[in-house]
Each structure stands twice: as C-alpha cells, then as structure tokens.
Amino acid sequence: MPTDRRTVLADTAIGVLAEAGMRGLTHRAVDRAANLPAGTTSAYYRTRQALLTALVRRLVALDQAELQAIGEQAPAPRGTEELVAGIAAFIERRTTGEGRRRSLARYACALESVHHPELREILTPRPNAARHAARDFLAARGVADPDGRTVTLLTCVDGLVFDRLVTGGTVSEQEIRGLVAAALR
C-alpha cells in the first residue's frame, strides 16, 4: 500500500469513481473513503480537474505496470492456444476484483476525456511488453500490418471487457478464438 499522500488520494479516488461514478467523485467523498480529515484532498488537489488528472495519471501508471509485468513474466505466446489463454486471463483480471474497479474508473475517465482533451492525452495507449508480445505473435505468423492488427485485436479485447462490465457474464473461449482468428487473417 502506498504511503505517499498524493498516491493514496489518487488510489482512493479511483475507488470512489468506480463505486459512485463521475458525479460521486468529490473531494469530500475521497476524504471520507480515505478516512482523512475533511479538506485533505482539496489541500493536495485544489480543483476537481486536478483530482481527476491525478486519478487518470495513477490509473495509467497502474495499468502500464500491470501490462509490463504480464509481458515480462509470461513468455511470448508460441501458439494460438497460448495467446487465447493469455487474453482470457487478461479479461478475467480486468473484469474481477481490483481490475474491475480500475476498469470501471478507466471507462468513466475515457468518456470524460471527450470533454477534456488533456485527459485523452494521458489515456492514450502506450507501448508495453504485453502489446509487443501480441504484435510479435502476429508478425511471426506473417500477418500484414502487424502493428495495425495489434491495435485492432486489443481494441476488440477492450470492447469485450467493456461489454462484460456493463452486461455481466463472462467472455467465452470461443469469442476470444474468433478475435484471434480474425487478427490472423
């Protein structure tokens, strides 16, 4: 658990946003959720926009660390089955527990970025080991435009995560196989 006050507040804000939505994200709500005296959050993040920007930066940092670790810990997929299993595990992480909380906050921030381009800039996908592994997998199979296909594949995976957060249920292995097959065509 981080001890830096700004990080604690940003982490708490992620939780508040996931639980209460954009309208529920207030300085007071973060103070209460963090069990801190009233006014603490606003002392660190003077405006709601400053709080939201800190939240988005923290969210991206957590996501990048997770994706980097996935790419470094798991060997690059040697076959379609390994890629399907890796995507299934990723979707499971993003739709349950802490990953669900962060995903809900991420999508709320993505919608908010429509009106705040500075947030969109922070949320722009970044290179990481997991993205490189997917790209290398496609390139090794001779896929035309592996960079573009990687973006398409990962966007579709993101869509499955979003759909399951909104509608419930789980993603079937068949759905993932279909995405991978389409990326390989």
Rank of each mutant, 00 (worst) to 15 (best):
L59Y: 01
L17H: 12
V114C: 00
R149Q: 11
V60H: 02
A89T: 05
V157L: 03
A34P: 04
V151Q: 10
D145M: 11
R120M: 06
L52H: 00
G159M: 05
P2Y: 08
F162R: 15
A89H: 09
S42E: 10
R58A: 13
L52K: 09
R93A: 08
A54P: 02
A13T: 04
L123N: 09
P77Y: 09
A130S: 15
I87F: 06
L55C: 03
P125F: 12
G71S: 11
A105M: 13
R100H: 10
A61I: 09
L138Q: 04
E72N: 08
D136L: 14
R6I: 10
V84D: 13
L184D: 09
C109R: 09
T3H: 14
P146T: 08
S42M: 02
P37L: 03
N35L: 14
R78C: 02
V84I: 07
V16W: 11
E98P: 03
A144D: 04
A76G: 01
L62F: 03
L184C: 07
P125Q: 09
L83G: 04
G24F: 01
Q64L: 13
Q68E: 15
R141N: 00
T12S: 00
R149D: 02
R28T: 07
I91N: 01
T7K: 07
H27I: 06
L153D: 04
A50K: 07
G168R: 09
R46C: 10
L179Q: 01
E118V: 02
L138V: 00
A108D: 09
A65R: 14
M1P: 13
A43E: 07
G148Y: 12
L165Q: 05
T53F: 09
A85D: 13
Q174E: 15
P2M: 06
E175S: 14
S172V: 01
L153V: 11
G168T: 04
G79W: 03
E92G: 08
G142C: 10
A108F: 06
R57C: 11
L52N: 06
G15Y: 01
A134P: 00
A65D: 14
